[in-house]
Amino acid sequence: MSPAREDTAPSVLLAHHLKQLKLPTVLREYDKVARECAQSGLDHSRYLLRLVELELIDRERRLVERRIRAARFPAVKSLDTFDFAAIPSLNKMLVLELARCGYILGRENVIALGNSGTGKTHVALALGLAACQKGFSVAFTTAASLVNQLLEARDERRLLRLQRELAAVKLLIVDELGYVPLSSTGAELLFEVFSQRYERGSTVVTSNLPFEDWTSVLGSERLTGALLDRLTHHVSILSLNGDSYRLRASRSRRGRTDGGAEPNQAIAATYNPETGEIPPI
């Protein structure tokens, strides 16, 4: 065997073995880290430690990315892009505490109530992102979409499977409850989802309606009472009342057209699957 082949054979075999072991970060970084450790005079155990740490960090990043994709967020937003000053009714300290995800461990719920456009969805998305980063499975949907999924699953005889999937997720986010009135069948199916998750998993619900008006959406005082009984047994309630973000944004655009200054607005932080960048909590 020629010297050239003797030199290349170990590298080829190492690359093959690392791929088989599913250690892509070690494969990508081992040569560079070896040179760095040699220059720093670090021994082989510290070299191996550094490689393993890089692999673990990268693996956790990929897991978070997968949880974010599985959640099907319409956008990825974090709390540091939320303008708390614009919504003085919102308990900032409570929201920050919820972002630590203790309520998920306790299988408790969160309900965000407030006018349209005040940031309820932003807060729900931020809590969902925090849960993904903490290692919890998350599913995001609107109330209307969820009901449509349940009705379709019932018609296609896969309702039990969908219900099991919804019951298994650690955090279910149901956005915009109250924007669309539900049929009696749809309301009953939605109630069943909440009932199956009662004290088994956490649910975040956002609504533009106060509790006393939920009957107009669910169509039954009895069903509304039973649903609220389950949702509010272990719950943190967030109040978001104030001017709509979209209304203020429209005003600010008009102001800029007139030569006004750029306002300090909450900006959506977007997850980039190409770079793996994830907005901070």
Rank of each mutant, 00 (worst) to 15 (best):
T8M: 14
A9M: 11
A9K: 12
P10Q: 02
S11T: 10
L13F: 05
L14D: 00
A15F: 12
A15Y: 03
H17D: 10
K19T: 11
K19D: 09
E29G: 01
D31K: 09
D31Q: 12
K32R: 14
R35W: 10
A38W: 05
H44K: 09
L48H: 02
E55Y: 10
D58V: 01
R61W: 01
V64M: 02
A71S: 10
A71Y: 00
F73M: 07
S78G: 15
F82N: 04
D83I: 11
F84R: 15
P88Y: 14
P88F: 14
S89K: 10
S89A: 09
S89V: 01
L90W: 03
N91P: 02
M93E: 14
L94D: 04
V95E: 03
C101P: 10
G102W: 12
I104V: 14
G106Q: 14
R107L: 12
A112G: 13
N115T: 10
S116E: 13
G119S: 13
G119I: 12
K120S: 06
K120P: 03
H122G: 12
A124T: 04
G128K: 00
A131N: 13
K134C: 07
G135M: 13
G135I: 14
V138W: 00
V147L: 05
N148L: 11
L150Q: 02
L151Y: 01
R154W: 02
L159H: 03
R161F: 03
L162V: 08
Q163E: 15
R164G: 13
E165T: 05
L166W: 08
A167Q: 15
V169Y: 01
L171C: 12
I173E: 00
I173M: 04
V174Q: 02
E176M: 05
L177Q: 05
L182T: 04
S183M: 05
S183E: 11
S183P: 01
S184F: 02
T185M: 05
A187D: 05
L190W: 06
E192Y: 11
Q196F: 11
Y198E: 06
R200A: 13
S202Y: 14
T203C: 12
N208Q: 14
L209P: 09
E212L: 11
W214E: 08
W214K: 01
V217E: 11
V217N: 05
L218W: 02
L218G: 03
G219D: 04
E221P: 03
R222Q: 13
R222Y: 11
T224M: 09
T224R: 08
A226E: 09
L228H: 02
T232S: 05
L238M: 06
L240P: 04
D243W: 06
Y245H: 13
A249P: 04
R251Y: 01
S252Y: 13
G260Y: 15
N264L: 15
P273Q: 07
G276Q: 03
P280I: 10
I281K: 00
